[in-house]
């Protein structure tokens, strides 16, 4: 048997990514660019919510959007129609974005003059929760048809989010979705999460969400 030498490492797999994410946040702070990482399951309404959000804020601040998908540019085309600066990122089959890909995305977007940059992460509640993108705040969308027990099934996602948007509240009468139970389930995993019920289709609740972003973008630049 050939001899081997052992290098002791004892380092989390996420250590490098976490360090890159911290460096990216520091750089964004210096430039006054607020980066929001928006996550959800596929079909929860990320792109529609984002369209509404841009409509609410585009006259007040410069907005840039990075659309991350495994393939296609349909989402980027939708967002581009709002007039916001948009770039489509392809993850090449990967199920999440990490800090380095986010950094490259921001460079591609040309984010230095952007005040609010939004990363629309890959539709997935597992992997995006594990990789810090360097965002200032994390938000996730839970849509009514997914059920109020989602926070119990994907605890890590809910524990890392600053805001949970509960979307598609217009269809509440048709689903066995218990809003109070949902709030309790979220609080169990993350007592600090801000919960905002919205309907991206009708615009309900979007103003409260836009207010949150106004506050946070101003705080970040201060």
């Amino acid at each position: 048997m050939s001899k081997v030498r052992i290098l002791e490492v004892k380092q989390s797999v996420f250590a490098n990514n976490d360090a890159q994410a911290e460096a990216l946040r520091a750089d964004l702070k210096e430039k006054g660019v607020f980066l929001l990482n928006l996550m959800s399951s596929p079909g929860a309404g990320k792109t529609t919510t984002l369209t509404r959000t841009i409509e609410a804020l585009r006259d007040e601040m410069k907005i840039g959007v990075m659309e991350a998908d495994i393939d296609s540019d349909v989402d980027a085309e939708t967002i581009a129609k709002t007039g916001a600066k948009t770039i489509q990122l392809h993850t090449g089959g990967m199920c999440h974005l990490d800090a380095e890909m986010t950094k490259q995305g921001l460079e591609g977007l040309g984010s230095d003059d952007v005040e609010l940059a939004v990363l629309e992460n890959v539709g997935n509640l597992v992997c995006p929760a594990e990789f810090d993108t360097g965002a200032v705040k994390n938000a996730m969308i839970l849509s009514v048809p997914e059920g109020h027990d989602k926070p119990l099934k994907y605890p890590l996602m809910f524990s890392i989010c600053d805001v949970v948007l509960i979307n598609k509240v217009d269809v509440l009468p048709y689903f066995d979705f218990d809003m109070e139970q949902c709030r309790k389930n979220i609080a169990l995993r993350n007592p600090n999460a801000l919960v905002i019920p919205i309907c991206a289709k009708t615009g309900e609740g979007i103003e409260e969400w836009a207010d949150y972003l106004r506050r946070e973008v101003a705080n970040w630049k201060a």
């Binding site: 050939s2 052992i6 490492v9 380092q11």
Partner: peptide, 21 residues
């Protein structure tokens, strides 16, 4: 109680690397 948190079991660590001598 449901007020519980994970102490260990969520890790993915690189422990060590073997290099041929």
């Amino acid at each position: 109680s449901e007020k519980t948190y994970l102490l260990a079991g969520n890790e993915i660590n690189i422990k060590e690397i073997e290099v041929p001598e």
